[in-house]
Write a protein that binds this DNA or RNA. Structure first.
Lengths: 338, 338
DNA sequence: CGAAATTAATCAAACGTTTGCGTGTTTTTT
DNA sequence: AAAAAACACGCAAACGTTTGATTAATTTCG
């Protein structure tokens, strides 16, 4: 039963015509007569002919494959994004290969190399936490492999990227809290090295200032994002002379730790928490954040994929301007039932 | 800057030797002298030579690629499994391409076809919910593409698979509840069409019977796994003449709905819930399941990937016995703090 | 010292498909 | 009826790499 797949040559031999005619016939090339074309197609069908992709790819020098490199596939945000990427790629008949950097710079460099060897037509990347050099991506330019960054993007504009505006989302979040009557709002921010921390801080300050209030820097606490770090930050808030009544948490994990700790101290009712969505089921908690910044991973993935496919199929990629796409994030108000 | 990638031919031309020698030199073939070999390697390095994968794959008729088809990538279980698969594949220098069936049979058939066209060396599959025919997989046999199923497997033994023994896990779960003193234990099971429902039911009955108790069939309720369905099941338990004090939920989603509903009715303290792990953060809930059946997605993915790679590289795949691997699932007791 | 063995490299074919160019045959145009 | 156009197909090269067969040069050994 070990059937070798049917080839064009085989069909040509049986029909006593040339392989080129078979190829053209199958592609509805005008220079092949209708009769011959039908004969070819019929035989191809009955022999279960399937084009040998490897051969075509090789011949065309294109792989119809896009690579995706991201930190951790099992994080909900990324698995949703890649799900979108795959869906978009499939529509245009592209294949997706992916790899995880596990937030490790060296691994990321290796993977970029591997993707290049695989001759992907383009690359989608969400950079690892400890990536601060970007040479490995620049190398791809000379091979004419376009790169689109998404969500975790490098801190400069002369690349293609899709990302969420955390700044404007943070403005919305703080505005919401102010409108609810809060006058002292704390923020548990990430390490200063993260670009995402800057954005949150800027948004926070912008909202406060815009409302003609004064920013109290001691209400913005940097945190290593661990449970222990969160607890320390919480303690600082609890002992603060202007003890805040609302807190903006860096992400859902931090919010989770925070809420857990506040519940333990029985002060949870004295705080409103706003967070950035990572965990799909966080709204099922008893004490949930009053609002969440939704970052639309599916949409980001979709946009990034489409931009990449555009770039791949645009002839004059050289002279092209950089896509700097911002996905507006929204503040989702959790209507707490009870 | 548009550098065309260096080829073996190019190196050969510069060194005035034949391409075959270059190829052999790069592969440390014994019939190339040490001097020439070094010259070749040096030049290759300085020209940044990278083998053209597409050409090699084409030439060898192998793609060093494994395909993965699963229902929904954004589900935590699957994203963890595929994360493992990717890690294993990378170790052996294989590439992973994947696609989602979105639990749709027709889509699955299409994807299998596409994977075949891509000439994957092997396929890992977790079948879609409404797949009951398996011809599309059998077709792969004649192309000598091995298939390993994982987690969601077909209901027969003459295929390779890796799966969790939900039956024995359910036995453990029910035993645990019995040991805690529960005498009336309800089960919210899935639709009867699912193999997974059978396993749970069998495990339940086995544990009850083994403990010399009588199975009350009305305590096993089939449910469509929606929130509404869960509520209906809950109501049946609440009105049951032998009202259960513990409930085995089909999965974490069902458990979530159930706990939410019980909390609303203020009867949550009258029930112990056991569930099957899908949601990583469910243990952060206020009222969490007292125990969870852990199905080790990472381990399953790992094993499935390794089996597939074995099959791909075993010369006499024909005569091979079928791998039927069962991953023991464990009952994780949640030590509730308060 | 001549035959055999070893070493070092080359040649050419092959993998399956596509595509520019050429060629013979038929049809259309003037 | 001759020239032009349209049609239908074949030829051959090309993509980059690998590999079995072959050759030429050198070394080894009886």
């Amino acid at each position: 039963m070990q059937s070798k797949p049917t080839t064009i040559k085989e069909i040509a031999r049986i029909l006593n015509i040339s392989p080129s005619s078979v190829s053209r016939g199958l592609h509805d090339h005008p220079s092949i007569g209708a009769v011959t074309r039908e004969k070819i197609k019929q035989l191809a069908k009955s022999l279960n002919y399937e084009p040998n992709n490897a051969a075509i790819l090789f011949q065309k020098g294109k792989t119809y494959t896009i690579g995706v490199i991201l930190p951790e596939l099992s994080e909900h945000f990324f698995s949703t994004a890649i799900s979108a990427i795959e869906d978009e790629a499939l529509k245009k008949n592209y294949t997706v290969i992916f790899a995880q950097s596990h937030d490790n710079y060296e691994q990321e460099v290796k993977l970029v190399e591997k993707m290049k060897n695989q001759r992907v037509d383009g690359l989608l990347v969400s950079i690892s936490k400890d990536t601060s050099k970007f040479d490995h991506f620049e190398k791809l330019n000379s091979f004419n492999i376009p790169v689109v960054f998404f969500d975790r993007i490098p801190p400069f504009k002369n690349v293609h990227y899709v990302a969420c505006s955390l700044e404007s989302a943070t403005v919305k979040a703080v505005n919401y809290l102010l409108k609810k009557g809060h006058r002292s709002i704390g923020m548990i921010n990430g390490p200063n090295t993260l670009y995402a921390s800057d954005e949150r801080k800027d948004g926070y300050m912008q909202a406060i200032t815009f409302n003609r209030l004064k920013v109290d820097p001691s209400l913005i606490i940097n945190c290593d994002l661990t449970e222990q770090g969160t607890i320390e930050a919480a303690n600082q808030f609890l002992n603060h002379k202007r003890r805040p009544t609302a807190i903006v948490a860096f992400n859902d994990y931090v919010a989770l730790f925070l809420i857990k700790y506040f519940k333990k101290l029985n002060v949870i009712d004295e705080f409103d928490v706003v967070s950035y969505a990572n965990l799909p089921i966080i709204s099922y908690l008893d004490h949930t954040p009053v609002a969440s910044v939704e970052q639309y991973p599916y949409l980001q993935g979709q946009k990034a994929a489409n931009i990449l496919l555009d770039l791949i199929n645009s002839p004059n990629a050289e002279t092209q301007a950089y896509y700097n796409t911002i996905v507006e994030s929204d503040l989702i108000i959790n209507n707490v039932e009870e």
